[in-house]
Structure formats: C-alpha cells, structure tokens
Design a protein around this nucleic acid. Structure first.
Lengths: 216, 216
DNA sequence: GTCTATAAAGAGATAGAC
DNA sequence: GTCTATCTCTTTATAGAC
C-alpha cells in the first residue's frame, strides 16, 4: 500500500516524489557550488537522507546533472511553443517567445544556470545530446525571426542568425542577474529587453540623423 | 645567474615566468573543468611539474582562483579607460568602451569566463572584493551611458541603469559563444552588437509606425 | 526505501632531501 | 626551484542488514 496517493509525473518506475526533490536540490547545489563542488553527502543531507540512500534513485552523480540539463532544454521549447501557438502576427509570436523564455529561465534559475554552466562536466556523449537540443532550440527562435523579417517587421539588412545572436545575448545572461525582489518585475523586464531590441537605444534625433546618413 | 634575461611583470619576489604560466593554465582548467573539478595534480602536469612544486608559487589552490578573478576585473576597466581616453563625443566613447570590452573578454576567455562562473567558489570575503570591482566597473559604464544621454545621443525615457542592463547582457554573454574562427570577425561583432543596441532590430516601416503611435 | 559500514580512489597540502 | 614520499581527509560508490 503506497503511503501517498499521488499521481506521479512521468516516471516509469517507483513512487517518485523524492526523485523530483532530488533533482531540484541537485540543480540548486550544482548552481551554487558547481557540479564537482557538490558532494553526494551534501545532497543527501538536504533531503534528510544518508549518502547511500541516494543510490536508490540514481546510478551515478553524473546522471543527476544529465537529467537536470535534459529537463531544462525540454522545458524551454515546450514553453515557447505554447506561447507562440495562437499568434498570427510573427512579431507578436516572437515577443511571446521572448516572454516565455524569460519566464522559464527566471523561474527555474537553478536548472537553467546549471544547464548553461555545468554541462561541461558531462561525458562527451551526453554533452553532444545537450548541445543538439540547444541548437534545435535556437534554430526554432531563428525561424521566428525569419518570419518576422518576411512579414516586414524586422530589418532585413542583417541575416536572421545574426539577429538571433543578439537576442540570445539578451536572453541568456538575464537569469544570472535578475532578482525577483528587484525593481524590475517581469513585465518591465520584458518591456525593457524587447523595447531596446526592437527600437534601439539611440535618441530619436540620433536615429533620424542615422537615417539621414543613409538617405542622402 | 638567471637562466632567462626577462624583465618580470609586476611581482615583488622571485623569478616569475612560471607564475604567469601557472595562472594562465589555472584559468584554462578552471573554465574547462570548473574550479572544484580541477586538481592540483592536473595543473602541475600541464606545467611539467609535480603537484608539490606548485606550492612554491602559491599557498592554496583558492589563491589561484582569486588571482585570476582579480586579474580579469583589473584588465577590463584599464582597457576601457584607455579606449575611452581620447574621445570628446560621449557616444563615440561608449562605442570605444564596448569595443574594448569585447576585445578583452574574447581575447582572454579563460580568465573572463572563470571570473564570471567560478567566483562563487571563493571565500565570502574574497567574493565581496570581486563583487565590488564588478560593481565599480559597471558603474563606470553607467557613467558613459549617462553622458551620452545628456549629450542627446541616447534615449532618455529609460534610466541609464536600465540601458546598462541591456548592454551588460549584450557584452557579458558574447565571450561564451564567440569563436575567433567563426564567420564574424571582431569588427563585424562590434558592428552587430552596437548597431542593434543603438538602432534596434525593427524594420524602418515598423519603427515609423511606432513613432506614429507616439505622435498621434 | 533507508540504514550502517566500508571499500577504493583521489583530493589538498606538508616534510624534507637535493 | 623541483623532487619523492606521505599525511590526512573527503570523495563516489557498493554490500548487505532491516
């Protein structure tokens, strides 16, 4: 008789509430101390377990890192697809994607920062799997940018891939400094990044003179 | 009789060419394997030394990380000040600062990425020193942005600190993906980032309609 | 599913010879 | 300035009882 009447997430085996906690705490410690800097004893202590008990839920410590990275690179495209779903206007779709990306990465900083900074500690084989997911994700974003260009909403003098490099900078680094208790809420953050990305930081006067330079 | 007729850098003691190599290799390994994931034996091997010999140049492994971080946060403001030096126009000064930042971080990826991702492994006291240098650096950049706003070259509807957050995203993450053997050389990279930062990614048509929205 | 106990390897750092 | 040798502690992971 199971002690808790939970419907488990997606696991194939066992009664896994503890497994989810394990992954959450692992992501937290990996971000805070680094992967190699996190011991299985520390991890066990945070769950109120002995070191050896962890091995009921995992085979090696590296498995945890791998699962955290897989989870993160899964959540991101899922959230973006959901956000993009119901927009006809490509620029609105892109804005929704930006919003979803920010939301996911800020709400899951431990997972997100771990998957960006600690994936180097995975085996080469597993690093390749992660790198492939990352590539696919950013290709998806590139597609959104390309559509917005085709619709005449984004400038076409720069290739979509280059615009995405800029966008990627804006999105990737945000979770490293953003604090939910800071002066910027999520709406302001999204407005700031989208605003400068689309309109630029130049003053109107400067922008007009730049246009003049081109026209004359 | 010294074996090499080198003028040493800034050290107060000893004959230190090896010390510089040690710091370089340390930064490389710290970036590649993480601080905790790097052993003193690995480090020694890269210098052709035994583990114990390192302790002639350092007291603890953590000292190396600290020196790498200090070095990185020293180089950045020095390079920016030098680049800004001879510009009267605030916007040109800011552009020169951006160029210098990119140059330094891309040319010293090991140091730069280590100081951003591994400083968490320092003692709390040392982390504070590093955090202070980081703050001072970005305050310097904020000053440049503020001047460019005062000169009417950057939009003033956003506070300088918010424009710097955007700029910081653009600059901070670049060294993580930029490859010197890629299709973008440093000039193109600087042009891309500065261009989108100043002018925005929207098409002119879209930009005009945005302006119209404000005017009408 | 969690425990105690422990194996086996690797870590940072030191002692002292040369 | 570099070495060999070693101390001491911590690490990941396993064995086997409950």
């Amino acid at each position: 008789v199971p002690r808790r009447a939970h419907v488990s997430g997606a696991g194939s085996s066992g009664s896994d509430d503890t497994k989810a906690r394990l992954l959450r705490e692992a992501a937290h410690l990996f971000r805070t101390n680094g992967y190699a800097g996190t011991s299985t004893r520390q991890l066990a202590a945070r769950l109120g377990l002995q070191n050896a008990s962890l091995y009921h839920y995992m085979e090696t410590k590296e498995d945890l890192l791998y699962e955290v990275c897989l989870d993160g690179w899964q959540r991101l495209p899922v959230a973006v697809n959901e956000a993009v779903g119901d927009h006809d206007d490509p620029l609105k779709a892109l804005k929704a994607a930006v919003r979803a990306h920010l939301r996911i990465t800020v709400d899951n900083r431990d997972v997100y920062i771990t998957m960006l900074t600690e994936a180097k500690s995975l085996s080469p084989k597993r690093q390749k799997v992660i790198a492939r997911r990352r590539t696919e994700y950013w290709e998806r974003i590139t597609g959104l940018v390309r559509e917005a260009q085709s619709a005449g909403e984004l400038r076409t003098d720069l290739p979509p891939a280059h615009l995405v490099l800029v966008l990627r900078n804006l999105l990737a680094w945000t979770a490293f400094w953003y604090r939910t208790d800071g002066e910027l809420d999520m709406d302001a953050l999204q407005g700031l990044l989208t605003g400068v990305f689309l309109e630029g930081a130049a003053s109107e006067r400067a922008a007009l003179s730049a246009t003049a330079d081109l026209t004359i």
